[in-house]
Design a protein around this nucleic acid. Structure first.
Length: 894
RNA sequence: GGUCCGGUGGUGAAACUGGUAUACACGCAGCACUUAAAAUGCUGUCCCUUAUAAGAGGGGUGUGGGUUCGAAUCCCACCCGGACCACCA
């Protein structure tokens, strides 16, 4: 061994680690379990790009560091390969998704092996594996049984290219998140999960509802943000330890607003209800507006009201036009607020005045009550609407320095033109008006959420079939599942749990492709699959042909990991019996995870992933976990008490994507420089939470650094391998420097500040090269610090510096060695540099012993003598002398 | 339009809690080694003025103001870039 050759060592150690099982914790017996998890990857077209590798490496560095701190690290890996994304890719290259999945899987695992992460391979899982999706279906069945999975008609987003419906979260600015096509809207019957029932809890847990039990640092500064939550802490009390921006995104997505519902009578005891947060503007209402989908519109068209037929036609054509438009067009027309007068008049609950009721598409059916009161003077949208349709604008809030002209005045202020409330402040008036409305039973406090129910069904092939059956006979007789609380769901039965998984039927490539008529590909499945016995009446029942959303697959995978391939798994059934059976299709147990193992490994200790999942995956997972907790399947309700979100690696200023052609594949770099170098480079690029632009110019520098480290360990003048302890040798300064390095690297990795940790390692190497040698122990310490970043070279050199006999006797990896500790004494500098300022301006410096640097008189006396200050400072002139221990002296002259 | 980040050398970026701005690297330039190149090593590298030189002086963290003995850091206004959400009543 003489030249650094990454090709020789990387594969060698990867193999050895696997044999020795150093990354495979004993899931049953581990003493200090730590679940270190990176977000579930889905295989993209060409496999992993450096952006993915960046994400994985950071998480792995953190895991390795924690392992050396003595934790039993569980870092599993798997593949989220079911779903539209994988299916679209397969189809785009003319392949059957099932076939492509095998190819992607092999490629993916090969690449992952090459980057040298400490994965627990025994627990790998793939979402399209029937052993896995059996439980995804099981989860769906539980949702149904507990009344959280419902079928309802809804105006949904439709992607004409993917030919499926999409959840709101999957539509970005009117375009399909997956393929970028413009989406349209359709009314169809779909499966939903009622995530809205959990809106309040999802919101509350973000910040915690109990007294804050927070760790504080020396100055009361909260230091918790970047540290895992200790076992036993309850996020429900202390809140989630997540980056603030992710929490904000979730709060905004849940979008709670508190306001008032107001009933408007429009004749014969009929009322429509509006929702507002600005009750103080109620006297400024000059019209009401309902969404085109509002029930009042349907009854209007059924001619329950006497209105002119010309009016009716006008309303009809408006509604038809509005519903046909694509999201994109609706938005393009943002400035022009279309609408039509329904001819109906609502009665103002406080003044009795008749208020015209309009229909307009700017009002959303799903938010609040689907109807709003129009206050053009104090709401910008209402203002625009009123101007366009020549409706009166009535000012009722006076705000100093503001007047209603071209724009609405939306601030709080003082009421005018509001009868008894004239002169009141907005806040006071709101309280009074609410009381008035309550007295008249025409209004009440209400809360509205932006969050919508989770649209689960997809008219696609590549996903878990939704395990539901529909029986025509039962439907006719109005039989509903035993809870019976599911309105309009007569005839729907869940597949029995014994029957799971409902296997995805094999189908030809031609039939797998979405047909474009909105029908699911599974409609073309063989009859033997499509029809089965009704579990209720024994008649013929048809299977649901929609599959579930990919986000369902990934909403619970972390719960499964520790229980994958677990021997002798015990599952406690809910009546307390213990079952040992855990084989595929063996049905006599209830839940997909081992209770004991789940208790010791979950929730996830450190969850690391990209911020792009702030509202999708992270919200769904929280919801699912919460529901499972409520059904007594889990002892906790927050899956990820601690989350770190890393930045994005971009290339040429843009996110890596195939369509932009800027995808960088790690393979070539790994071949040329090795994964140790690439890992180091990626981690050095910038702060891990910010990401950065990938420019490969710097990568050679990292290789150079590793080569220099390699050379140091070949140079006997740098090593004192005979001494096991550093003694009275001449390298005291180097030793001090090493201890400072240990201190800083330890702190920085703990805070995910990988780039600065690496900088300190480099600084130390520079110093070491300049002179001095290190004891065996200290040589080892440095390698340990390097080990999380560049695991292979550290292992190689570690083995070399071990005494030969030891090394031969048994393999003891650096990656399970104990993290080095530092001597606080040694990290102190003997000499401290003191800065001398005059009026805050730097005028000179001097060195002083660490002890004297705390002595005020001494410091000031020395500072007066510094050459640079002599021209300025005399015995009398300083008005004040500012002195900071160990840092500076500042003479203030004026 | 809203919310949240961010703006520091030629480049990626450091700078704890307000206390030496530019650590660490990349790039570039010069030198050494070499027949030559690569590799490697050494030196220099924010800007301006001045000096033969060691050096000295001044300016400088998007712009303008403020607080302070002292501001990249805190406050206000503005400009620019990015991310996320967007007719949410």
């Amino acid at each position: 061994m003489d030249v650094y050759d990454h090709r020789k060592i990387e594969v060698k150690w990867q193999k050895k680690w696997k044999e020795a099982g150093i990354y495979q914790p004993d899931l049953r017996k581990a003493k200090k379990p730590f679940f270190n998890l990176m977000m579930f990857p889905y295989p993209s077209a060409e496999g992993l790009h450096v952006g993915n590798m960046y994400a994985f490496t950071g998480a792995d560095v953190y895991g390795r560091y924690q392992r050396m701190q003595g934790y039993d690290i569980f870092e599993p890996i798997g593949l989220d390969g079911f779903g539209i994304h994988s299916e679209n890719y397969a189809i785009s290259i003319g392949k059957h998704p099932a076939e492509q999945a095998k190819v992607s899987e092999r490629r993916f695992y090969e690449q992952l092996s090459a980057i040298g992460n400490g994965f627990a391979w025994d627990q790998k899982l793939e979402t399209y594996d029937p052993k896995y999706y059996k439980w995804t279906q099981w989860l769906f069945v539980q949702m149904f049984k507990h009344g959280l999975a419902v079928r309802k008609k809804a105006m949904v987003n439709w992607c004409p290219s993917c030919k499926t419906v999409l959840a709101d979260e999957q539509v970005e600015g009117g375009r399909c998140e997956r393929c970028g096509s413009e989406t349209t809207r359709r009314e169809t019957e779909q499966w939903f999960f009622k995530i809205t029932e959990y809106a309040q809890r999802l919101l509350d847990n973000i910040d915690g509802t109990g007294k804050k039990k927070q760790e504080t640092g020396n100055n009361g500064v909260i230091r918790t943000q970047f540290r895992p939550m200790p076992k036993g802490y309850d996020p429900r009390l202390v809140g989630l330890r997540w980056p603030e921006k992710i929490k904000i995104a979730q709060r905004n997505w849940i979008g709670k607003s508190e306001g008032t519902e107001i009933d408007w009578n429009y004749g014969k005891g009929r009322t429509i209800t509006t929702f507002t947060t600005r009750l103080d503007t109620i006297f400024g209402v000059t019209f009401l507006v309902v969404a085109p989908e509002h029930p009042i519109v349907a009854s209007l068209l059924n001619s329950k009201f006497k209105i002119q037929s010309s009016k009716l036609r006008e309303v009809k054509s408006y509604i038809e036009g509005a519903l046909k438009k694509t999201e994109q067009k609706r938005q393009a027309a943002e400035k022009e607020k279309t609408g039509v007068d329904s001819g109906l008049r609502g009665e103002h609950p406080l003044t009795g005045e008749p208020i015209p009721i309009w229909i307009a598409e700017f009002v959303l059916k799903d938010y609040g009550t689907g109807a709003v009161m129009g206050v053009p003077a104090h709401d910008q949208r209402d203002y625009e609407f009123a101007s366009q349709h020549h409706l009166p604008i009535r000012k009722v809030i006076e705000v100093a320095g503001k007047s209603v002209a071209d724009v609405a005045v939306t601030e709080y202020g003082t009421l005018v033109g509001s009868g008894l409330y004239d002169g009141y402040s907005s806040q006071e008036a709101m309280k009074g008006i609410l009381r008035d409305l309550e007295a008249k039973k025409a209004g009440r406090k209400a809360v509205s959420y932006h969050l919508r129910d989770w649209l689960i069904s997809r008219q696609r092939y590549w996903g878990p079939p939704i395990p539901m059956l529909f029986c025509q006979q039962c439907a006719k007789r109005g039989r509903t599942f035993k809870g019976g609380y599911l309105k309009g769901m007569a005839g729907w039965w869940p597949a029995s749990e014994e029957e799971l998984p409902v296997l995805l039927p094999e189908m030809s490539y031609e039939n797998v492709r979405p047909a474009g008529d909105g029908k699911a590909p599974l409609e073309k499945a063989p009859e033997s699959w499509l029809y089965t016995k009704c579990p209720q009446c024994g008649g013929r029942a048809k299977r649901e042909t929609d599959v579930s959303d990919t986000f369902l697959d990934s909403s619970w995978y972390f719960l499964r990991y520790p229980s994958v391939n677990l021997k002798n798994s015990k599952h406690e059934t809910r009546n307390g019996e213990i079952s040992n059976r855990f084989e595929f299709r063996d049905s006599n147990f209830e839940i997909p995870w081992d209770q004991e193992v789940t208790r010791s490994w979950l929730p996830v200790d450190a969850y690391i992933g990209g911020a792009e999942h702030a509202v999708l995956h992270l919200l769904y997972s929280r919801f699912v976990t919460m529901a499972l907790h409520d059904w007594d399947y889990l002892p906790f309700e927050e899956p990820f008490p601690f989350l770190f979100s890393h930045g994005l690696i971009i290339k040429d200023g843009a996110k890596m994507s195939k369509s932009r052609g800027n995808v960088v594949i790690p393979d070539d770099y790994i071949n040329k420089f090795g994964s140790d170098t690439l890992r180091l480079y990626l981690m050095f690029l910038g702060p891990y939470d910010l990401g950065g632009d990938f420019q490969d110019t710097g990568i050679a520098g990292m290789y150079r650094f590793l080569t220099r480290v390699w050379k140091l360990y070949q140079d006997n003048s740098k090593l004192q391998l005979k001494n096991s302890k550093l003694g009275k040798n001449s390298n005291r300064d180097l030793e001090r420097s090493l201890h400072r390095t240990i201190q800083k690297v330890t702190e920085d990795i703990g805070k995910f500040k990988f780039n600065t940790a690496i900088a300190f390692l480099m600084e130390f190497v520079n110093e070491w090269e300049d002179g001095g040698s290190l004891s065996r122990e200290d040589c080892g310490s440095f390698l340990k610090l390097l080990a999380p970043f560049s695991p292979h070279i550290s292992e190689e050199l570690w083995q070399v510096i071990q005494q030969k006999e030891e090394a031969k006797a048994s393999f003891s990896s650096i990656h399970v060695a104990e993290w080095p500790s530092f001597d606080e004494q040694l990290t102190q500098f003997k000499e401290v540099e003191i800065v001398v300022q005059v009026n805050g301006k730097l005028r000179g410096k001097f060195s002083v012993s660490a002890k004297d640097s705390e002595n005020k008189e001494k410091l000031i006396a020395l500072a007066r003598e510094v050459k640079g200050v002599l021209p300025y400072v005399t015995a009398e002139n300083p008005k004040a002398i500012i002195w900071v221990k160990g840092k500076l002296v500042n003479f203030v002259l004026s």
